[in-house]
């Protein structure tokens, strides 16, 4: 049913810390590894060993440069489904294959009823949905719905594969609808933000901004910035014999 639920009991989602993501792609491969045999199985690759390999992946990590000069920085930017509160990808679906779960807010595609019209991927501003050319249906992040409620795996594994795999704890999973949850507190503390809030789809996943650059040099007693090199060597910018002599003298006396 592609009408959205009035409200969901929980708002399960991810919090992604752009300050500490190192772009190692562990979440990407872990996601693929789990999901190619999970709810969305298989995640097909096309021409994997050929000249134009591409395939269905539910999580991608971009690398951006933001800002210029000393204030500029490299940001590793994981991107997957944000499990929006009001997702247009669900309402445009003509078949009801796309739906938002009332109990936890997870947005899913039923691979048995999807007709592969691709309209949902047109409606998503975040590029979260990837069409599986071999299966003819749309695939997307399931928030590892087949892990988080799975009694047959150890309790510490009952979180999305990407969160489990992250070696720097840049990814967090929890109920963002509960203001007392760890993820909600983290978002409040770090001023987590929405991607493209102007689209109005109210993403559940939040991004934590990179922290301001810390200047470790000053605390070490070193100057914040190296002083300009001094042109005191003979022959650099001076021409007269007297100037050269004084420059030489200055150099010798400065030793």
């Amino acid at each position: 049913m592609t009408m959205l639920p009035e409200k969901t009991d929980k708002k399960l989602g991810l919090v992604i810390d752009l300050d500490i993501c190192v772009g190692c792609q562990a979440c990407v491969t872990s996601c693929k590894e789990w999901n190619t045999s999970g709810y969305s199985a298989p995640l097909t690759d096309i021409d994997p060993y050929g000249a134009d390999p591409h395939g269905t992946w539910l999580n991608r990590v971009h690398g951006y440069e933001a800002g210029e000069g000393r204030e500029g920085r490299t940001v590793h930017f994981p991107r997957s489904c944000l499990h929006c509160e009001e997702p247009a990808c669900v309402t445009v679906c003509p078949t009801g294959a796309s739906y938002k779960r009332e109990e936890d807010g997870i947005v899913l595609v039923n691979p048995d009823t999807c007709i592969g019209c691709k309209l949902c991927s047109w409606a998503c501003p975040y590029g979260a949905r990837e069409y599986d050319y071999a299966e003819g249906v749309m695939k997307k992040c399931t928030l590892c719905v087949d892990r988080i409620y799975n009694d047959t795996i150890p309790e510490e594994d009952r979180i999305p594969a990407c969160v489990r795999a992250c070696p720097t704890s840049a990814r967090h999973f929890g109920d963002l609808g509960d203001p007392e949850s760890d993820v909600s507190k983290l978002v409040a503390k770090r001023e987590g933000y929405d991607l493209m809030p102007e689209m109005g789809y109210k993403p559940v996943n939040k991004y934590l901004p990179p922290r301001p650059a810390r200047d470790g040099r000053s605390s070490a007693g070193a100057p914040a910035r190296l002083s300009e090199p001094q042109h005191t060597q003979p022959g650099t910018g001076t021409t007269s014999t007297a100037d050269k002599f004084f420059a030489w003298a200055d150099t010798v006396l400065s030793r």
């Binding site: 951006y64 933001a66 210029e68 920085r73 940001v75 930017f77 991607l195 991004y207 901004p209």
Partner: peptide, 8 residues
């Protein structure tokens, strides 16, 4: 789109 505009 990235929310990184504060850095430039």
């Amino acid at each position: 789109a990235t929310g990184l505009g504060t850095f430039g």
